[in-house]
Each structure stands twice: as C-alpha cells, then as structure tokens.
C-alpha cells in the first residue's frame, strides 16, 4: 500500500499532465464551438509544456544561472546544484510556437465569423450544405 501511494506521490506531475492533456483533447473533439476547440488546443499544448518543465526539475537545485564574480576566476561548476536548463530552452520555443498557432487560429476564426456569422460548427455545416 505504501509503495502505491509512494508511486503516486513521486509521479503526480505526470498524472497532472496526462489529465490536462485529456481535458484539452476532449475539448477539441467534443465541443461544437470553434473557439472552445481552439482553447482546448491551447490546453493540450500547455499540458505538454508542463510535462517538459517537470522533466527539468531537480530536487534541491537552483535556477541555472551560474554564480560568478568578476576577477576571481570561478570554481568548478557542479551540475547537481542547478536544474536542467534544456527543457526550459525547449519550452521557450514551444510557448512561442503555441502563441503563433493560437494567433493564426484566432485569425481564421475571425474570418469564419465574418463569413458565416457564427462560430458553432454545426451551424456552419448547415450553411455549407444549403449553399455549396
């Protein structure tokens, strides 16, 4: 029993990202409103960003900015003292990508709204079927 709770507690970050990802996927698949789908897409991307950041975490480590002082030269750097910088670098990129995708998606949604007067997908489909 203890091992199971230990398992859950040691890995709760992964459970969180999986549940967030499922929320995002559910919104993208099941929702009828296009803006809700776009929000779902954003939640999905954020879940993955959280996952990467949690890979980078290290217990008892600080932010990866090397302590240094001018003129003294510096001591050898111990990697254990600093958290992993690479996931942070990657996620900076991924955040920018998700912002870019969001911007384009919203632009498309505005175009659709201007053309069809609605953002409900079934109403748009009805209009398409009526006047192909």
């Amino acid at each position: 029993m203890e091992s199971i709770t230990g398992l859950i507690l040691a890995k709760y970050n992964y459970w969180m990202y999986i549940s967030l990802m499922m929320v995002g996927l559910y919104a993208m698949i099941a929702k009828n409103n296009l803006v809700k789908k776009i929000i779902g897409m954003n939640i999905l991307q954020t879940a993955i960003i959280l996952f990467y950041i949690s890979i980078g975490a290290k217990k008892g480590a600080t932010i990866p900015i090397i302590m240094h002082s001018e003129g003294h030269g510096h001591e050898a750097v111990h990697a254990v003292q600093y958290i992993n910088p690479l996931p942070h670098v990657l996620m900076l990129t991924a955040i920018v990508v998700s912002v870019a995708t969001l911007g384009v998606a919203l632009a498309l949604a505005i175009r659709l709204y201007a053309r069809f007067g609605t953002l409900e997908e079934d109403e748009i489909n009805d209009q398409v079927r009526e006047a192909p």
Partner: peptide, 16 residues
C-alpha cells in the same frame, strides 16, 4: 507508461 518514468525531481534521472 508513467510506471517507467523517473520520479519527480530525481537528480539521477537520465535527462539530467
């Protein structure tokens, strides 16, 4: 798949 994952904050995880 999470069963194979290293624990959170483990300094000896392969990623580090």
């Amino acid at each position: 798949a999470t069963l194979d994952f290293p624990g959170w904050g483990d300094p000896n995880a392969p990623a580090h």
